[in-house]
């Protein structure tokens, strides 16, 4: 069985799920945003989390990468429940995860090259020459070769996202997260980012989680999709299964049926809490 050799060499590469959520609940203050989310993501799978504004999908993503603490429930990543881990144990898992933020979140005071090399400089003892080689490799993977001396402000929106992906790839992560990869991009550039995700998926055996509300890109990149509405999972399945799903809420989302944006004040408040809010500063909680 030569094709199974990598699995035998890598103790983590078992058939068990890469990410497992069990009855995950997240509150902001008194308000519960996620009402018991459970699903599994297999190694090498690409899962697209779909949902409208205020559905809780961004909160779900922030919880998965440890930026929000769940109120209750379990988040198993690589066999460890990150809901119960200390900050330093969580950091060890985070080194195996990469995250591409909506706006890129590149450090404005550093060049593209310094941004991408930062995780390597921080977490490895590699020589500078090795880091330079890896840096070129990562930039080449996202189609940005030659841009290492540019400042983020000099890049276009699509290039910023690519640079952010290169930074997320720096540590050769096993899990890659994308927050709204096509937000704020024109359709052609957005399609380029989708293509990049597909290429990454084919080239590496990475587990990829994408949060989006763009149906076209979801169909293109997803192995499986999960539709979230008002903090609950409405439906989950392959793109074909989702197309065939007859639940009204699913059809409404997939057929883009209009509805009044906000009906009640409480719904609106729920929607507002979806945006990144003022917290006492998650950075402060670190030690």
């Amino acid at each position: 069985m030569p094709e199974e050799t990598p699995d035998l060499l890598d103790p983590d590469a078992t058939s068990e799920a890469m990410i497992s959520l069990r009855d995950l609940r997240v509150n902001y203050g008194e308000r519960e945003i996620l009402h018991g989310i459970s699903f599994d993501v297999q190694r090498g799978e690409t899962l697209v989390i779909l949902g409208g504004s205020g559905s809780g999908k961004s909160t779900l993503l922030r919880t998965l990468v440890g930026l929000e603490k769940p109120t209750s429930g379990e988040i198993w990543i690589k066999g460890r429940n990150i809901a119960t881990l200390s900050e330093s144990e969580l950091d060890e898992i985070r080194k195996k995860m990469g995250m591409s933020f909506q706006g890129g979140a590149l450090f404005g005071s550093m060049t593209v090259g310094e941004n991408v090399a930062l995780p390597l400089r921080e977490h490895t003892k590699l020589e500078d020459s090795t880091i330079q080689i890896m840096l070129r490799l990562k930039l080449e993977q996202v189609g940005l070769e030659g841009f290492e001396y540019y400042m983020p402000a000099q890049l276009s929106g699509g290039m910023k996202k690519r640079a952010a992906v290169a930074r997320a790839l720096a540590m050769d992560p096993e899990i890659l997260f994308f927050d709204e990869p096509s937000a704020g991009l024109d359709p052609i550039i957005a399609a380029g980012i989708d293509q990049l995700i597909v290429e990454l998926k084919q080239a590496f055996r990475m587990t990829i989680i994408v949060v989006t509300h763009e149906l076209a890109s979801a169909y293109l990149i997803a192995d499986r999709m999960v539709l979230i509405d008002k903090g609950n999972i409405v439906a989950m399945g392959t793109p074909a299964e989702m197309r065939a799903n007859t639940q009204p809420r699913v059809r409404q989302f997939f057929d883009r049926v209009a509805e009044p944006e906000v009906s009640r004040e409480l719904d609106y408040l729920q929607m507002l809490t979806e945006a990144p809010r003022q917290r006492s500063g998650s950075a402060e909680r670190r030690s």
Partner: peptide
């Protein structure tokens, strides 16, 4: 504060780099 608004602080945390 600007880094907080542009999610750069969150990015540091997800890269396992303590902002402090």
């Amino acid at each position: 504060g600007t880094m907080k608004v542009t999610e750069e602080i969150d990015a540091l945390e997800t890269m396992a780099i303590s902002p402090v």
